[in-house]
Every structure is written in C-alpha cells, then in structure tokens.
Amino acid sequence: MYGTGLAKGLRLTLRHFVESYIDDLRYGFRKYHHSTDNFGIRQGTQTKGVITVQYPDEKIAVPERFRFVPFLIVEDDDHPTRSGKDWCTSCGICAKVCPPQCIWIVRGNDPDTGRPVPEPEGFFIDIDICMNCGYCAEYCPFDAIKMDHDYELASYDRTSHHIHDKEKLSKPNSYWRSIAPTRAYDEMLVRGTWEHKDAAKEARRGSASSRASSPQPAAQQAASAAAAETAAVSAAVEAETVATAATAEGATPWSEDDAKREERRRKALERKAKRAARGG
C-alpha cells in the first residue's frame, strides 16, 4: 500500500525517541554520573540512548595514543642526579621527520670548547603549522618528545602565543607517565630502563671507568660518550660536524661500537657528497 514505507520509517524515528528514555530508566540515570563505568555505558556499544556530551561541562577524556601538539620531556624535579635536565639530546631527527617543518632546534655548544653538547639551546614548535601527525614522537630515538593530550590551546593572539619555545614545551617526565601510563611502560621495556637512555649508560660507564681507572673523570667521560652517541644517530643521516668533533677529540675510549660508528659516518659523508654532486 502506498505510504507503508513512509509509515515504517516514522515508526523507527518514534522508537528511537522512546528508546532514549527507556535506556535512561534501565540504567536509572546513573549513566549521567561521572565514573568510568557509567560514562562507558553512555558511550558504549550497548547504549540505545542519548550519547551526546555537554562540552565543556563534560569532556571526553582522550585515549592514550591521542596526539595533539608535542611537548618535550624534562627530568622530574625530584630526580636524584638529573633533575630538570632535558631528555632531548638535540639530535635533530624530529626536525627532519616533521612533514610541515615546524620544529626549529638550536643545538647548544660548550662555551669553553665550542663543541656541540647533547642538549638543545633553543627548541621551537610553531603550533599553527604543526599538523599533529605524531612523527616527532614516533621517531625520536630518546623518547624525549611526546604528543600532548591538552587540546585546549585557543588564544586571542596567534603571533605571541602560537610559537611554543622550550620553556613552554617542557613538561616533566611524570606528566607523560600520568597521561599515558601504558605507553610509558611499553617505552620503558624497549629502552630497558625507566631512566633516559644516556642516564643508564652514564651509570654503566661510570662503574666501568672506575674499574679501568681511566685518567679522565668519570662524569666528563660519560658526557662525551653521550655526545658521541648523539652524533652517531645524527650521522646516520648527514651530520658530519658533531661526529667529527666527537671522534677527532680522541678522548672517547674506543669500543667495538666505534668502528661501526666510523663506518657509518664515512658512508653518510659519501652520500652527502653524492647528493651535493647531483646538486640536490
């Protein structure tokens, strides 16, 4: 009969309307309460009721992998040896993988020797340009840059507020562990320590050097080892400066790694020369 299809459709609309009340009755309105279970019911796969969320009185907490503009991890204040230190070693990889090229890093130099140090002097992210892709966090070899969960960044003036400098970017390690506990744990498993890669190495080198009674003070040695490590990572792409500095220095104790490192550096230089020859 003409109009049956129409009537069936209207009946469905009516059912949706009624069901939203039935759903409320079934859960006794507790799904509007704020605990995990109740909010889970409201948004979950079983609900038939109203799923809308009244922002900003209510916000949906974002999942752990959620990515918004990045932040830099610094060591917690109560860390025994490295409090306040950047996790970032200024290796430059994040600046290279960043698709819209919105990361700017000034690598620091030692004022006495003029050699690069594994710590950024300046770090800028233009959050107007950042496309929240998450590459910087994904490819950082030191777990030093992470994607934030705080998406409420609106401001009245983009020119003064939207280039985040190092101060604005830095957040303590404990913050990252609180917003993404599972991921922080997984990263720890990959690194093999809750500490920064270098801190762990420092500890190892420290004990090794005291046994070998090296003429160099342990701390200094560890620092240059860290610099060499940074250099190795950069050299894999193209940086010759750090690597040259670190190896020409000659103070770094040779280990079996260094031969490989030297090889890598040589290859990187070759590639660079080739590219220059092509005019690319």
Binding site: H34, T36, F39, G40, Q43, G44, T45, V53, P56, D57, E58, K59, I60, A61, V62, P63, E64, R65, F66, G134, E138, H149, D150, E152, S178, I179, A180, P181, T182
Partner: peptide, 23 residues
C-alpha cells in the same frame, strides 16, 4: 603500521571535567 591494536580502548583523565572510558 603505526602500531598494533592496543589491548584496551582506555583514557586517562587529564583536563577538568574529563570523563573516562575503558573498553
């Protein structure tokens, strides 16, 4: 891929008024 499936679809409260889910 960027990553495998996470075991749980889970969030942690971070902003004020955040409501949390866990599946």
């Amino acid at each position: 891929l960027f990553g495998d499936l996470p075991e749980r679809i889970k969030s942690v409260s971070n902003l004020t008024n955040d409501r949390v889910r866990d599946y």
